[in-house]
Write a protein that binds this DNA or RNA. Structure first.
Lengths: 331, 331
DNA sequence: AACATTTCCGCAAATGTTTGCGGTGGATAA
DNA sequence: TTATCCACCGCAAACATTTGCGGAAATGTT
């Protein structure tokens, strides 16, 4: 602490100016090989490390990205974060991670923290009822790229990276039809979220064509336990659903807890299909058939896009990750 | 970007000195209420925000903690991170998160990144075969607290926060004995890890007293799929185990996949007990009985300890979070 | 020998804040 | 009146780095 090496200390030792030392360490062509060597040797010896604060102040760059998610402890987000972190580090960037706890105020707070710590870019997945519009537009205006993923704003004014939500939901619906299920229970998340709307609309659109021979019951559940509750209720009735569709891992977990507590067996008594990150479905017996939403790949795309933006500002873009059908034994 | 508010700009507008503006915003007693008011008003109007880089440079503090884990995408670590993040933010700190990918080199890299970005403190869970000793001792020496959690160094020279590993393993062993299981298969993780050693030793110690009436087969598995493999092999033999113990969620998942693919039913044919974070066991049917290792609570303890260290340096301390037995239906 | 060019390096400003110290003007006390 | 004190404020250094510009010495060119 007391004896941190600085450019100045090196320069004094070698009877050079600070600027020469600085340039020597950066291989500036103005400096002779000889002094470069001497400087570098001493720098190594003194364990010199550039003071990030000073560099940041001078260059007005921090080499840090902000990453805001509703929650870290989530199978989708944690793999997303993992992917972003990997490639960020490879490119000399660090990640400040903030969680909004599904609270719009918290989210605004987090955006402000990003602003204060002057990050070079922001990744964000919005909470329901987000009202942080002015905050992130201000980022954009001041030239700091904001990349939205998963839960994105409705309009087309920003960089967004999403799953192919409609494609996934369409695949799901078509699969259900293909298996000739007539009584379908469909579990969706918070209806305020664009992701929910997209999946629901695409899902229903497919069934609209089926001339009402199929009964589709939509339920909106805000949590895993909520899903468990409605499923328990539904399967206890005599006219219980033949099939349960879950738009997320969270809902799938709730549904499966309910089914596991019942006497019903999958897929004989009731079949199950989900949109999922892929980890959870493999834990059940039988393994659940799902349409994959790959958080890791989404993260890779997001950081790639961010690095592009670091290079040179490109026009706003919407990236969509295609869906993939993974066969299990639940349907 | 071009028009960021600074102390200087405010001071020019009001015909004051920079220092007066600075002090006014900080409620320094030297400044009159009148000027304070004027300064604050203008600051608000101009949307002044202190330049973090400059503050850091001047004060030599960053209000940032580094957090290094083997992997983010992990049910234990992500809840740990979530807990730390919550309380860090409440106290004005941000979190830089780095993953070591079970690679000692990566881990050293991460420590260096923490050093370069001059974090105010470090949380770290070590990878197997970690050789970053010099790195983190250097942190300590330069007055930057390092708090180890979960996977900690063997010696007692550092702040550590762990589960009550021996207690958990002891409870597990005693439970197995209580249920009169005679052929036990025990799955442990990487034997190089102190956490594995602690759990294994405590586990075996209990059985040592049982005069060899119980057969305990220890297996070390480095991954979920490795666990799946050894379990599949074991239960296919005619003298298959009556019970499977898993020291972690990861191993439990592998074991359960194997059992689910077999015709064996739990707990009739084979019983299961795990040490777990608590999320995974609830997904199976029947729910798995487990001894809880609570990542979230561990995180709360870790950040609390860190904040204590920020206040004033206290002597090295080892904190242990007691274990809790949670009854499921698998035993 | 005079001039031009290259090679190598230092000066000083600039980034935005914090903070020790000193200074001014006015009120109060002796 | 002079000394004392307080309330209020500014000067300037310091934090460590980057970078435009200019300049001296060495080398090359006529």
């Amino acid at each position: 602490m007391g004896t941190q090496a600085t450019l100045k200390k090196i320069s004094v030792q070698l009877n050079l100016s600070i600027s020469t030392v600085s340039r020597a360490l950066k291989n500036h062509p103005d400096i002779s090989e000889n002094t470069k060597r001497k400087v570098k040797e001493l720098a190594l010896l003194m364990e010199y490390e550039p003071n990030a604060y000073a560099v940041n102040l001078r260059t007005n760059k921090s080499k840090v990205f902000g990453l805001i998610v509703p929650a870290i402890s989530n199978l989708f987000y944690d793999s997303f974060i993992a992917a972003v972190e990997e490639d960020a580090r490879k490119n000399g960037y660090s990640l400040i991670i903030l969680q909004s706890a599904d609270d719009p105020l918290q989210e605004s707070e987090n955006l402000k923290i990003c602003k204060l710590s002057r990050v070079d870019g922001v990744f964000i997945s919005l909470v329901p009822d987000s009202h942080s519009d002015q905050l992130y537009t201000k980022f954009q205006e001041s030239g700091i790229p904001v990349i939205f993923f998963d839960k994105v704003p409705g309009n087309k004014l920003f960089d967004t990276i999403c799953m192919a939500d409609d494609e996934a939901a369409t695949i799901a619906a078509n699969t259900i039809i293909k298996y000739k299920k007539k009584k379908v229970m469909a579990l969706f998340g918070n209806p305020e979220l664009s992701i929910t709307k997209k999946r629901r609309d695409a899902f229903l659109k497919v069934f609209k064509k089926e001339k009402a021979t199929i009964k589709v019951d939509i339920h909106y559940c805000l949590s895993s336990s909520a899903a468990q509750k409605v499923v328990t209720e539904a399967i206890s009735k005599k006219s219980r659903p033949e099939h349960i569709f879950c738009m997320s891992d969270e809902l799938l977990i709730g549904a499966m807890k309910s089914i596991n507590q019942s006497a019903l067996s999958i897929p004989a008594d009731i079949s199950v299909l989900a949109i999922s990150n892929g980890f959870i479905p493999g834990l059940f017996k039988p393994e659940i058939t799902y349409i994959e939403t790959n958080g890791y790949e989404l993260g890779k795309l997001a950081i790639k896009r961010m690095l592009e933006n670091m290079e040179n500002k490109t026009p706003v873009k919407s990236i969509i990750l295609p869906a993939r059908y993974v066969q299990g034994g639940s349907l």
